[in-house]
């Protein structure tokens, strides 16, 4: 019971003064770099693109240009550069919505405890039982032309129960700590206990979860576009491009592999990032 901490603080102080500890985390840094590169390409891509989004540059499935042409003879490389922003923005906003909603559900369940916890989490389990994409499809098939905000909300809603599970788990370990009891004994408002005492101590695992959810979001948004649910049927969109060009996979594989590669790299990047954050949080806890 005595020796909780063999060599206490100075070590930490030293680490704090030097270069920030996270820069030494290879996984985190490489994930961050990869993610930033893809994001930069998606944002500034249209400026770099040699051709327009819908410009026909040659016959369909020909080898003209860096990555050849697609089923309509449009330049694949240009469309890859054009086609990321929509996917990324929708995925990011959807993720944020899902994480915020899920965190609220999870933390409230953990903090309330008892019956509330049971009821909230069992309802949550019901939602968890639906595959993520199914929920989105049910709604999207009912509307004629999906709006961006619809996809965002649907992605967010489908993430929320999954994030809630994680958030509740993390919060459970915090709400039973003495500093939360100390705030209770002082009679702090419940909302303040959650906002000031519980949430700040969950930031690292929640960040990691956000990174992971972002990966799923990209897949989800790409998947929906592949199935034909995108905001602009004519525009370039990674998911949609895979669908449009899949017939030419044998003759002009780059028309499909281009967007696949971008989605893949972005997923690896966000995944590494999430992993790195989790490792870093684990290490600072020790």
């Amino acid at each position: 019971m005595s020796t909780i901490d063999e060599f206490p603080t100075p070590e930490l102080a030293v680490a704090r003064r030097g270069a920030p500890a996270w820069t030494r985390q290879k996984r985190l840094v490489s994930g961050l770099v990869l993610t930033l590169i893809i994001v930069a390409l998606a944002i500034f891509g249209p400026l770099l693109a040699p051709h327009g989004e819908n410009e026909v540059v040659g016959p369909p499935y020909s080898k003209t240009g860096v990555l050849g042409t697609d089923y309509l003879g449009q330049d694949v490389f240009s469309r890859v550069l054009y086609g990321g922003l929509d996917v990324l923005v929708i995925a990011l906003l959807g993720t944020l919505l899902g994480v915020v909603l899920g965190t609220i559900i999870g933390v409230v369940a953990a903090y309330a405890g008892g019956w509330w916890d049971e009821v909230i989490m069992r309802l949550n389990d019901v939602l968890l039982a639906f595959p993520q994409i199914l929920l989105a499809l049910v709604v999207l098939t009912a509307v004629a032309s999906p709006k961006a905000w619809m996809i965002i909300v649907l992605v967010g809603l489908s993430h929320a129960p999954r994030v809630a599970r994680v958030a509740r788990g993390v919060a459970l370990g915090i709400v039973s700590r003495d500093f939360v009891y100390a705030a209770e004994a002082l009679g702090e408002r419940r909302s303040r206990v959650i906002l000031r005492e519980v949430l700040p101590n969950m930031s690292a695992p929640l960040l990691a979860e956000t990174g992971l959810r972002l990966t799923y979001s990209i897949g989800l948004v790409g998947g929906l576009a592949f199935l034909g649910f995108s905001t602009n049927p004519d525009g370039a969109n990674w998911g949609q491009m895979i669908n449009e060009n899949r017939l030419g996979l044998a003759s002009q594989p780059w028309s499909v592999l281009g967007p696949v590669l971008m989605i893949g790299l972005f997923c690896i990047g966000t995944n590494l990032l999430a992993d790195g954050i989790a490792q870093l949080a684990h290490r600072t806890e020790d």
Binding site: R177, D178, F179, Y181, A182, A185, R196, E197, P200, N201
Partner: peptide, 13 residues
């Protein structure tokens, strides 16, 4: 109330 374990009773943030 003062708690047993000062490593748990102060909010680290």
């Amino acid at each position: 109330y003062i708690f047993q374990n000062p490593y748990l009773s102060l909010n680290p943030r």
